[in-house]
């Protein structure tokens, strides 16, 4: 029997390249279930844009869609260029925490400020996975990594909160262990205009699990157990992962505002 999500995948490139126990498959599943529930029978109307890192490989080459795979951190500006010239397309960025909140962090904040009409799915595995588990912008304080052997001296960025404060129409954080909630968040985001951001905390067994001495299943369970509803969250980010909706607005997106300026001339 064919998998119900198979029509969205380039089956010839499967199996994917991800490590056993990686959360990318869970996030991909949530994304495609949301796409199917939104009524898209194919990905023909979608353009997926990604940068560099393991999460950037989720769409490219696995999705049967137009995929643009550009430089590290630069998926968001590339996606803005696509969307402004072809507003009828559903433009989705998929990337990791290092890609989107680290090297591309400036673009992320300004895309939210502009309310650029994109869906950005950030797979937050808390480290730079592809390059060997170095500290990243979302790494919990104190965690040892390959470039912070004495523990991360810095504090993690609360990316969903930052994006919400910058003006995104929608922002939500869940974990890969919250499959249904993640799917619902993506479904909501797909139906909205303006800038939409969904953060999925996701296990990296190879680069984080080893540091935490957790096998893949316990690592996923750890993410789930550290997650608390954001209005109940106490303690610092990283000890606990607040989950839930961070922004829920319906303001006109950049496409609409620019279109209005054209008409007035």
């Amino acid at each position: 029997m064919r998998h119900p999500l198979a029509p969205y995948l380039r089956e010839e490139v499967l199996p994917g390249p991800f490590c056993p126990g990686c959360g990318n498959g869970l996030v991909l599943g949530a994304l495609l279930r949301a796409v199917a529930r939104a009524g898209y029978t194919s990905l023909r109307d979608f353009v997926f844009v990604s940068g560099i890192g393991c999460a950037a490989w989720i769409p490219s080459p696995h999705l049967k869609a137009d995929t643009l795979h550009v430089a590290h951190g630069r998926a968001i500006p590339t996606a803005i260029g696509v969307k402004l010239h072809r507003p009828e397309l559903q433009v989705v960025v998929v990337g990791g925490d290092g890609d989107l909140a680290g090297i591309g962090g400036g673009h992320l904040v300004h895309a939210a400020r502009r309310n650029a009409d994109l869906l950005v799915l950030m797979v937050n595995n808390l480290v730079y996975g592809m390059t060997g588990g170095q500290v990243g912008p979302a790494t919990p304080h104190g965690l040892p990594t390959s470039t912070t052997p004495y523990g991360n001296p810095e504090r993690p960025l609360d990316t969903s909160a930052v994006v919400a404060a910058a003006g995104a129409n929608y922002a939500a954080r869940w974990t890969a262990a919250h499959g249904k909630a993640l799917e619902e968040a993506i479904l909501t985001a797909l139906g909205r205009r303006g800038f939409r951001f969904v953060e999925a905390l996701s296990p990296c067994p190879g680069r984080l699990g080893g540091r935490l001495k957790l096998e893949p299943a316990p690592l996923l369970r750890w993410l789930r157990d550290q997650a608390v509803p954001r209005d109940e969250a106490v303690g610092t980010l990283g000890e606990r992962f607040p989950v839930g909706v961070y922004a829920d607005r319906d303001e006109p997106g950049l496409v609409e505002v620019l279109r209005g300026q054209r008409v007035e001339r």
Partner: peptide, 10 residues
């Protein structure tokens, strides 16, 4: 990079 995206969009 906005130019790159726009160019691919035509």
């Amino acid at each position: 990079f906005m130019l790159i995206g726009a160019s691919w969009a035509g």
